[in-house]
Design a protein around this nucleic acid. Structure first.
Length: 141
DNA sequence: GCCAACGTTGGC
DNA sequence: GCCAACGTTGGC
């Protein structure tokens, strides 16, 4: 299958991009939403994902890759359906792409991120991915 | 199986 | 701090 693209949210208070970079690898745990879980389970090694800071910042700050597909979430109760994936940082975006910039762009207005604001793990289409990366090359969109 | 009440998330 | 969106729970 072709490479898939994703967007994963984290409150920087809980787990920030800088922490992932420092650690070199990370376990994406704590997802407690079935739609998000299905997305985690659809991820393949080598897929890429945007790291989005929710609440504080409200912007995409970096690119990660999936290094390990879904496995049971050790932070969840035994027998629960929740899963984690493992990720590693690829690179920081040259300039963060803010939620405001994404909302303001008609090409990106249909993203999972916009349509379902509470979804913590969403799909990004290849077109949207390209578009966001292009935006990140220039300051403020 | 429906629906109201409630809790959580996240933007503003 | 408020509110909208959405998921979950519980009564019927």
């Amino acid at each position: 299958m072709a490479k898939q693209y994703w967007l994963m949210k984290s409150e920087p208070d809980a787990y920030a991009w800088d922490q992932l970079v420092k650690d070199g690898t990370g376990m994406w745990d704590g997802v407690r939403n079935h739609t998000a879980k299905l997305n985690l389970m659809a991820m393949k090694v080598g897929d890429e994902a945007l790291f989005y800071h929710s609440n504080i910042g409200k912007e995409c700050v970096g690119i990660m890759k999936i290094t390990e597909t879904a496995s049971p979430d050790p932070t969840a109760e035994e027998g629960s359906p929740w899963v984690i994936v493992r990720v590693a940082p690829v690179r920081a975006l040259k300039h963060p792409v803010t939620l405001a910039a994404i909302k303001a762009d008609p090409a990106l207005a249909d993203m999972d991120l916009i349509r379902q604001s509470r979804l913590s793990v969403g799909r990004v289409t290849p077109a949207e991915w390209k578009h966001i990366l292009k935006k990140s090359e220039k300051p403020a969109g």
